[in-house]
Amino acid sequence: MTDIATNAADTAELPRARTDWLPLLLVPALALLALPFIGNPSSWVTLTVAGLAMGMMIFLMASGLTLVFGLMDIINFGHGVFISLGAYATLIVLGPLAAWGQADSLGLNLALMGLCILVAMALTAAVGAVFERVIVRPVYGSHLKQILVTMGGLIVTEQAIHAIWGASPIPIALPASLRGAYVLGDIVMERYRVFAVVIGLVVFAGMELLLNRTRIGLLIRAGVENPEMVEALGYRIRRLFVSVFVAGSALAGLGGVMWAFYRQTLTAGMGMEVMVLVFIVIIIGGLGSVGGCFVGSLLVALVANYVGFLAPKLALISNILVMALVLVWRPQGLFPVARR
């Protein structure tokens, strides 16, 4: 056998560390930077927890979208309806089982949340599969048509929500044990926000495990980078894409449930409203990058909460500013995915 590695040109090349820590440091750096401006540590903790909770929810909604884009170069402007649908799906559970939410039992309360999440994810996954087949599949390759036709899907699905559940906002109640706050001396942390952070972390950890430790995950990561080569290795990327689309829809549904209990009001347009933040997060994170999506979500949500406290009128503008700054720094987003 020939030993190719013996030549000088080869051994001289040693691997460089490629892990990009800088964007990861942004989140703690931002939180620390905000502390002196806010002054009061207990307000700071409250705001930080609120920001993290919101960031986790945005991450749930955005992660599927960014993967779908990375894999198939498809941009789904109708992604927001899965958020709304997930939110409304809670009504299916809350209708007959409202008593579980009122019961003074953590077990029953959590079971109710679990059921809401399950039903919402099942519904959004099913609608996602239909959406992919009917709306998205015929318009591969043309971004213009994709944007238009997915907007059309958004209109129709939002209207269908109106037809089924009515057009007026619907209030929903948080299960009893998730109401109120944990109080540690001066520091007040709302229970539901802590719950949202936990759910977000669990999903993020699950996704990281899936992407890094399983064959399907490897395929997704490889497919984001070069779908053609994945096909040339003998994998049917269409099937993979449909699964990711459906999973992304289900995650948006989960995000919708979390968002619904956070706002405690349902409107058909709630998904599209939050999509503005989702798009900003995706642009900041780098299209196709789950890690970037996570960092971007936390960044955007923390900035929104800090600025909302310090200068309420600038809250949404602040996100545009964050986006502009990130793009000036890294035009491809925080974690650009290498691509063909």
């Binding site: 490897l218 990561r221 490889a222 984001v224 980078e225 070069n226 053609e228 080569m229 096909e231 040339a232 290795l233 003998g234 994998y235 049917r236 990327i237 995915v337 290498a338 063909r340």
Partner: peptide
């Protein structure tokens, strides 16, 4: 035949760009 089926029939392809998955 679609590309994956051709690959499964036993043909391997090394493109000029090499198409290494750099992230993996």
């Amino acid at each position: 035949a679609p590309t994956p089926d051709i690959a499964r029939a036993g043909i391997a392809y090394v493109p000029e760009s090499m198409a290494i998955f750099t992230d993996l």
